[in-house]
């Protein structure tokens, strides 16, 4: 089987999974209690005639099966519908815009930092197993791992944005000003990015660290590690060439699965720091029962998870010659 076929097959599996996800989230959101027109009309004071008109407008008075058929039909035509709440705005515009970029930047940077630190410190802790370094790293990582993201974010906000006042309190950019050039803009953006990035990075760090440390310890028991030591290689080479490369294989698979956790972490962080991303869109849409947007985000997320897993498999195949050969 060629590599292309392999990817093709994985993609097919992915599509089936996405189909399932789409169906489930259609059904679940409608079975759950909550009436979007409450949120749409904004205030319970809006009169009954208005509410009835809106219910009819969104087709919510039709049988569920009819709504579903319509939804699938529209989806196949590439239409994800119009937001109930931000009336008139196509869901696709809301999702695939600035919000997505903000989230990708936040998630990407914090994940990169967490991954980098998690791997490096994981390797170091495993190498110095049982020493003070190891134990203090474990304590720190367990603390960050079990710390609620929301709480930690609030603490950062209080300390760095309120008392010390070095980070802005909210948003992705200073509101209401026009930046002189892209450099200024980027500086402003980065300044806003720091606090949420640290929050999310710290909250991810613990998990990656512990996983890496465990995997490396496993790898240490392998015969080839004994060979590497017998060869009198430097510690750096033993750790980062021989141990880490093998330990990265399960790590990559973990990353594929981890995407969902990233999103939930992002939801919390984006809410605390008013970071205008998909996470906060989820939060707002859930609160307002904005089904079309939620369906859109979940579709997006399903695609993201599936793609992440396919990517993880491909990267694994690249890293691990055994899989690569099996694939080819």
């Amino acid at each position: 089987m060629g590599f292309k076929e392999y990817v093709g097959k994985r993609t097919l599996h992915g599509i089936v999974t996405i189909m399932l996800a789409v169906t489930l989230n259609f059904i679940l959101f409608r079975i759950m209690p909550g009436d979007p027109t409450r949120a749409v009309s904004g205030d319970p004071r809006v009169d009954t005639a208005t509410r009835l008109a809106l219910i009819a407008k969104f087709g919510l008075d039709r049988p569920l099966i009819e709504q579903f058929v319509l939804y699938v039909y529209n989806l196949l035509r590439g239409e994800m519908g119009i937001s109930f709440v931000q009336i008139g705005r196509p869901v696709i515009d809301i999702i695939l815009g600035r919000k997505m970029i903000n989230t990708i930047i936040l998630m990407g940077s914090s994940m990169f930092i967490a991954l980098f630190l998690g791997i490096v410190f994981g390797v170091i802790a495993a190498w110095r197993r049982g020493t003070k370094t190891d134990i203090s790293l474990i304590v720190v990582s367990l603390a960050t791992y079990s710390m609620p993201v929301f709480w930690f974010g609030m603490m950062l906000l209080l300390v760095f944005s309120y008392y010390i006042n070095i980070f802005p309190i909210a948003g992705t950019i200073t509101p209401g000003i026009v930046h002189a050039n892209f450099f200024e803009y980027a500086k402003d953006y980065l300044n806003h990015l720091m606090a949420p990035m640290i929050t999310l990075g710290v909250s991810f760090f613990g998990g990656y660290f512990l996983f890496m440390r465990d995997t490396i310890l496993d790898v240490f028991t392998e015969d080839y590690m004994l060979t590497a030591r017998a060869k009198g290689l430097s510690n750096r080479k033993i750790l980062f060439k021989h141990a880490m490369r093998n330990a990265l294989l399960p790590m990559v698979s973990l990353m594929g699965v981890h995407v969902t956790f990233l999103i939930s972490g992002a939801t919390m962080t984006e809410t605390v720091f008013s970071w205008d991303g998909l996470g906060r869109l989820i939060y707002d849409s859930v609160r307002n029962n904005d089904y079309p947007v939620l369906q859109g985000i979940f579709l997006f997320m399903a695609v993201l998870v599936v793609v992440a897993n396919i990517l993880a498999d491909i990267v694994n195949a690249y890293l691990d010659p055994r899989i690569k050969e099996a694939v080819e």
């Binding site: 209080l158 909210a170 948003g171 209401g176 984006e270 809410t271 605390v272």
Partner: peptide, 22 residues
């Protein structure tokens, strides 16, 4: 001269922002 509306999602963050003058 102008009236700027700024989104701060979290109620504690909103309070802190007012108290700090942001």
């Amino acid at each position: 001269g102008s009236f700027l509306v700024r989104v701060i999602s979290e109620s504690s963050a909103r309070y802190l922002a007012i108290s700090s003058g942001e």
